[in-house]
Structure formats: structure tokens, C-alpha cells
Design a protein around this nucleic acid. Structure first.
Length: 418
RNA sequence: GCGGAAUUGGUGAAGUGGUUAACACGCCGGAUUGUGGCUCCGGUAUGCGUGGGUUCGAUCCCCACAUUUCGCCCCA
């Protein structure tokens, strides 16, 4: 038997209902907030992700699906959504007018990692990006949008962690202080952190292995190594969040796994137990240098992404998803009645009535069961004797009342009673 | 990438080195000769993740692999 690749999964039955519901919700909500939908390729040139996500990040160094096409082009299955959106923004010269631009995407991403609860190799991310403004209102809009979205979806006990990475200069300033502080303790850090010390010292703050060590507990606070302007900016962001009733918690050790972030970064964490280790359902931040780094003009941006699989996991607890009930189910026994069922179904569907019937000619009993499984509200019973007199029997599946309708009035009757 | 656990039908699962792999749900058919949902009866895994090995014989023991899952790492 051929099976699905490791870390991939089929979305069927109840999961499919959930996914459809979430997607409908996302589309509605983004439209409501005036975001435009954008779809970019599932794979891009390999260089794009190396330049954006960062050469030193785990995502790029060990988790990408890289391949060469038949013409030896080096390509990578997208591990996240922002890089493609920014590439498209530049390539389509969206910066030429109408800024800031509010975009949202929703699609599958690919990372070669160990699968587990809430983590797959093929997974789905939905995210928004606002390109073209450095105003704190943008930071606040993005964070509160994400927060409200999850609230509306039924999440409770949401926790927003937020931090300010500051400007490039701020970070250089801080990195220097951090390295000076860490230098004498280098031997007490884990092997990964020894490497990070050279490649990406900020990541050491986020290291789970060394978190309990006294070295990290007394580490210099990034918020104290920033310019007055950066500090003021962050203060404003927090102030607005309070106005908007977003519960947040400043976490000076929050740094993201992608290199392109600066200034505001945040994560949204759900305490739903089913999520286990996958409790971070959304994350994002500001990336003011990325557009320029990719060859565009200097355009400040901010965005976030969230994992649909994690939302789906938590949704079991949050609400009971049921299939939409069918308006009608047509039952029949013989061939003549079956022909009638087929044409009647078409006529009803054209009139906007959802209807189904058994195509395989199973027993009447089975057809009744099937009607119940589909939560059909009205049953249309085709009876040869009735048909000869030009009648059709309609049964209300709730009250069990039956009524005989003139065959040529059946559509009108169903439409006005459906 | 590292360490632990699991893998029996459509589903939940019991079970044993040796004839027909329990039970329940579901599904199909019948009693009900064209009106169901209750009840009763019958049917429903040539098969116990895949490939090897041990054995007269393996779903059961051993090995490898795959997949899933938990923890680490990382992340959404």
C-alpha cells in the first residue's frame, strides 16, 4: 500500500468541516478588516529564503525542502509566508501606490522536521502583512487583529507575549553588551549556544536548555540598551494595546526564530491542553529592513502568521462542528420512481434547495437512515400509485406529518416551506 | 537530529506459539410482500503496520524498516 509521506496528513470528515469553517471565517474576517488576499507560489528560488529567513536560522539550515528542477534551478518549498509576500510586493511594484498595503495569505508551508502533535512537515499558515508604514498604529492593529480573531474563534485564556528588539543600531549595541557579558560564561552554555554566540547571539536568550542557568537569569535586558526613540515607540505600542483591552505580558527574552524581525515582536499563546507543546498559535513582528534587503525601496512592514492545524486541534474543545443539514431527501423504490427522483433533484437544486437521494437503489429502510444521517428536514416520498394520480408525498422529518402535493406544485411548495 | 512508547476490521478494542481472531459501535440485508428511526435475526478482518529470522507451526518470540505518539531541539 502506498501511504502518505511522513509528517503529512489527509483532511477528511470532521477535520474537513473544521478546516472549511476556519477558512470561511478567515476570509470573512480579513475582508472585514480590509485586507486583500494574496497567493504566492508554493516554491520559490532557494536564495529568497536564505536572504530573508536568515542563514543562521534552523529553518534554513536544516528544515527546508530543497530541490533542483529539470533545468537545474535551485528551488525551495516555502517554509513560511512572509518571504514570498515581500518578494511579490517588490516584483509587482506594489510600493508604487496606495500605501500602506494590507495583505493576507493562507496556504501550505513545508519544513523538514520531526512531526508531532500540532507540527507537521506540510502544514498550513494563515497570516497578514501590512507593508508601508512604521506607525505604531500598524503594530497595534496587527496584534489586536490576531487577538480578536482568536477570541472570535472561541479561544479563551489567550496570552500575548511581546518584546521590542529595537533598531539595527540598538541591536548592535545590545549584542556587544550581551557578548561581553556572556564571554566569561561561554563554557557553561549548551553546545548550540556556543555556536549562536558567534552566529546569532540574540537567540541565546530564547534557549530552553540554558534557561534555568544563572547565566541567563542575569543577562542584560535588551530593553535597556535601546535609544530613547525606540523606548518611546515601544511604550506607545503597549499603551495602545491597553486601550484596546489586549492582555499582554512583556517578555524581554522573546526573540523570534527568523532573522528579519526588528522593533516589535510578539507571540500569542493558548493554554488549551490539547495543544501541549504547540501552544504558540500565532507569532509575528515588525520587519522594517526586509523589503530593502530584497532589492526594493526602504519600506517598513509588520505582520504575523498562525498555524491552522493548531487552531483545528483546539477547536474540538471550543465548539461542536456539524454538517449543514440537507433541505430535502428523496426516497424511491422502483426504476420509474428513480427517474423521477433524478429529475426532481435537479429541479429543486436549480431552485436553491439542497437535496440528495440514494443513487445505488438501496432498500427503503436504508434510504430513511441516509436521510436522517444527512439531517434532512423534508422527505420526498415517490410512490408509483401517487405518481399515477399526479401526486407526490412530502413528509416533515421533524413532525412526521405527511401531505400529498400536486406534482406540478411540488417545487413551489418546497421552496416556500424550505 | 537524540531518547521513550505504540501499531489487530470502517471505528473502539479483547486475545493466544497450534482447528472458525472475542465483544461493541457502524455498515448491508431480512422479519416489516413500498413508510425508517425501537426490537429481533443474519452478514460483515483468507487478516493482526512492512520485510526478514527462530520454529514442525507465529498475529503472538527476535531483528530491521515504516508510520504514529510523548519528551528534547526547533517552531506556527
Amino acid at each position: 500500500m502506498i501511504t502518505k509521506p511522513k509528517g503529512c496528513y489527509d483532511v477528511i470528515d470532521k477535520e474537513a468541516l473544521k478546516l472549511n469553517k476556519i477558512n470561511r471565517y478567515i476570509n470573512y474576517y480579513c475582508d472585514f478588516y480590509n485586507y486583500d488576499f494574496i497567493r504566492t507560489p508554493l516554491f520559490e528560488s532557494r536564495e529568497l529564503f536564505h536572504r530573508t529567513v536568515g542563514e543562521s536560522t534552523d529553518i534554513v539550515t536544516k528544515e527546508t525542502y530543497d530541490f533542483k528542477d529539470r533545468n537545474d534551478r535551485e528551488l525551495t518549498l516555502r517554509p513560511e509566508g512572509t518571504a514570498g509576500v515581500v518578494r511579490s510586493f517588490i516584483e509587482n511594484k506594489m510600493y508604487g501606490s496606495n500605501l500602506p498595503r494590507k495583505l493576507y495569505y493562507n496556504g501550505t508551508m513545508y519544513r523538514y522536521e520531526r512531526p508531532g502533535n500540532g507540527r507537521n512537515r506540510e502544514f498550513t499558515q494563515f497570516g497578514v502583512e501590512i507593508l508601508g508604514s512604521n506607525d505604531v498604529a500598524v503594530d497595534v492593529e496587527v496584534i489586536s487583529f490576531a487577538y480578536r480573531l482568536f477570541e472570535e474563534l472561541g479561544f479563551q485564556d489567550l496570552n500575548v507575549k511581546i518584546n521590542n528588539l529595537g533598531s539595527k543600531e540598538d541591536r548592535e549595541h545590545y549584542k556587544k553588551a550581551l557578548k561581553e557579558y556572556l564571554q566569561p560564561h561561554l563554557n557553561n552554555l549548551c553546545d548550540d549556544c556556543k555556536v549562536r554566540f558567534e552566529t546569532n547571539p540574540l537567540r541565546i536568550l530564547d534557549c530552553k536548555v540554558d534557561q534555568d542557568s544563572s547565566v541567563l537569569k542575569n543577562v542584560p535586558n535588551i530593553l535597556e540598551y535601546q535609544s530613547e526613540e525606540s523606548k518611546e515607540r515601544f511604550k506607545k505600542v503597549l499603551e495602545y494595546l491597553r486601550f484596546l483591552d489586549v492582555d499582554y505580558e512583556v517578555d524581554a527574552k522573546l526573540v523570534r526564530g527568523l532573522d528579519y524581525y526588528d522593533y516589535t515582536v510578539f507571540e500569542i499563546i493558548s493554554s488549551e491542553e490539547v495543544l501541549g507543546n504547540a501552544s504558540t498559535i500565532a507569532a509575528g513582528g515588525r520587519y522594517n529592513d526586509l523589503v530593502e534587503k530584497l532589492g526594493g525601496p526602504s519600506i517598513p512592514c509588520m505582520g504575523f502568521a498562525c498555524g491552522l492545524e493548531r487552531i483545528m486541534l483546539a477547536m474540538d474543545k471550543i465548539e461542536n462542528i456539524e454538517k449543514r443539514p440537507l433541505d430535502c431527501y428523496i426516497l424511491y423504490v422502483n426504476e420509474e420512481e428513480k427517474m423521477k427522483a433524478i429529475t426532481l433533484a435537479q429541479d429543486l437544486r436549480c431552485s436553491g434547495i439542497s437535496v440528495d437521494y440514494d443513487v445505488t437503489g438501496r432498500s427503503l429502510k436504508s434510504q430513511f437512515k441516509e436521510a436522517d444521517r444527512n439531517h434532512a428536514q423534508l422527505l420526498i416520498l415517490l410512490n408509483s400509485e401517487d405518481l399515477q394520480h399526479g401526486w407526490i408525498t412530502v413528509k416533515d422529518n421533524l413532525t412526521k406529518e405527511e401531505i400529498k402535493i400536486e406534482e406540478n406544485e411540488i417545487i413551489d411548495y418546497i421552496v416556500s416551506n424550505g
